[in-house]
Design a binder for these strands. Sequence first.
DNA 1: CCATAAACCCACCTTTTCAATAGGTTATTT
DNA 2: AAATAACCTATTGAAAAGGTGGGTTTATGG
Lengths: 141, 141
Amino acid sequence: MIMISTKGRYALRVMVDMALHQGETGYLPLKDIALRQEISEKYLESILKGLVQAGMLAGVRGKGGGYRLTRKPEEYTIGSILRLTEGELVPVACLESNAAPCPRAEGCPTLPMWSKLNGMIQNFFDGISLADLMDKPEDEQ
Amino acid sequence: MIMISTKGRYALRVMVDMALHQGETGYLPLKDIALRQEISEKYLESILKGLVQAGMLAGVRGKGGGYRLTRKPEEYTIGSILRLTEGELVPVACLESNAAPCPRAEGCPTLPMWSKLNGMIQNFFDGISLADLMDKPEDEQ
DNA sequence: CCATAAACCCACCTTTTCAATAGGTTATTT
DNA sequence: AAATAACCTATTGAAAAGGTGGGTTTATGG
């Protein structure tokens, strides 16, 4: 069982990277980020695309262009980033919002467990901000 | 993101089913379970195979045969069942026991978060027993 | 002792998702 | 005009999910 794919993991790493390096220059070219994070430029491009479309990043073309965060790091939750790249962060198909209503739902012995786990996961990811990941990892989190 | 596949969900439902129906007869034929749980016999067979090989179920062939739990429901954790059908219950590839050591691990801004989530997931699944899922779901859990 | 019931075993298949690559177009700056 | 860099669309290869088919072995009951 692996729940978070490379796409989501890369997205988080890249967002942290951008948060740490912004301010140095106005916009951060994809090329630089890809180099630092050792992700292929093409793959990274496909990841950033979704983040731009959702308004989490701003992209500017041409010389001197690149990408930039549109908010302060404290204002991004990990959940909001992961939901863009991974889709809904639910542990089982039955809990997806577009799921066909399950005829077994009432009386299903496992559903309450899945719901509880789902709550834990949502709280976990929505309780962490990008800023929380920027601190050097000597201490907890 | 869906972390638990049908295989794992079916395995749990079937284990609960068997726990609830054992005692009535000595062994429960796969056919009956498949019928009650509306799972194809063939697919169910492939799920039970692993559980038998791991010693969680005993199978007896021939007329009057079928499957039976080898322990009391309180003695199965949900984690132990899911690990058989789903593999390791880790949220990211980096945490798998056979993962190549990541050169970025030290200093990775996201790793502590993944580790914490992993701990939560293990505790969650290992803290619930099959018996816990047998109670009718009016009340909590 | 034979028909039946049942688990067991092995191979295959289809669809979807993951992870990425390729190649081109548009906008901006110097 | 040249260089830079985002943007866009399509394709691909590998793996996993979800399942099916057909046959073999073992036990029981008539």
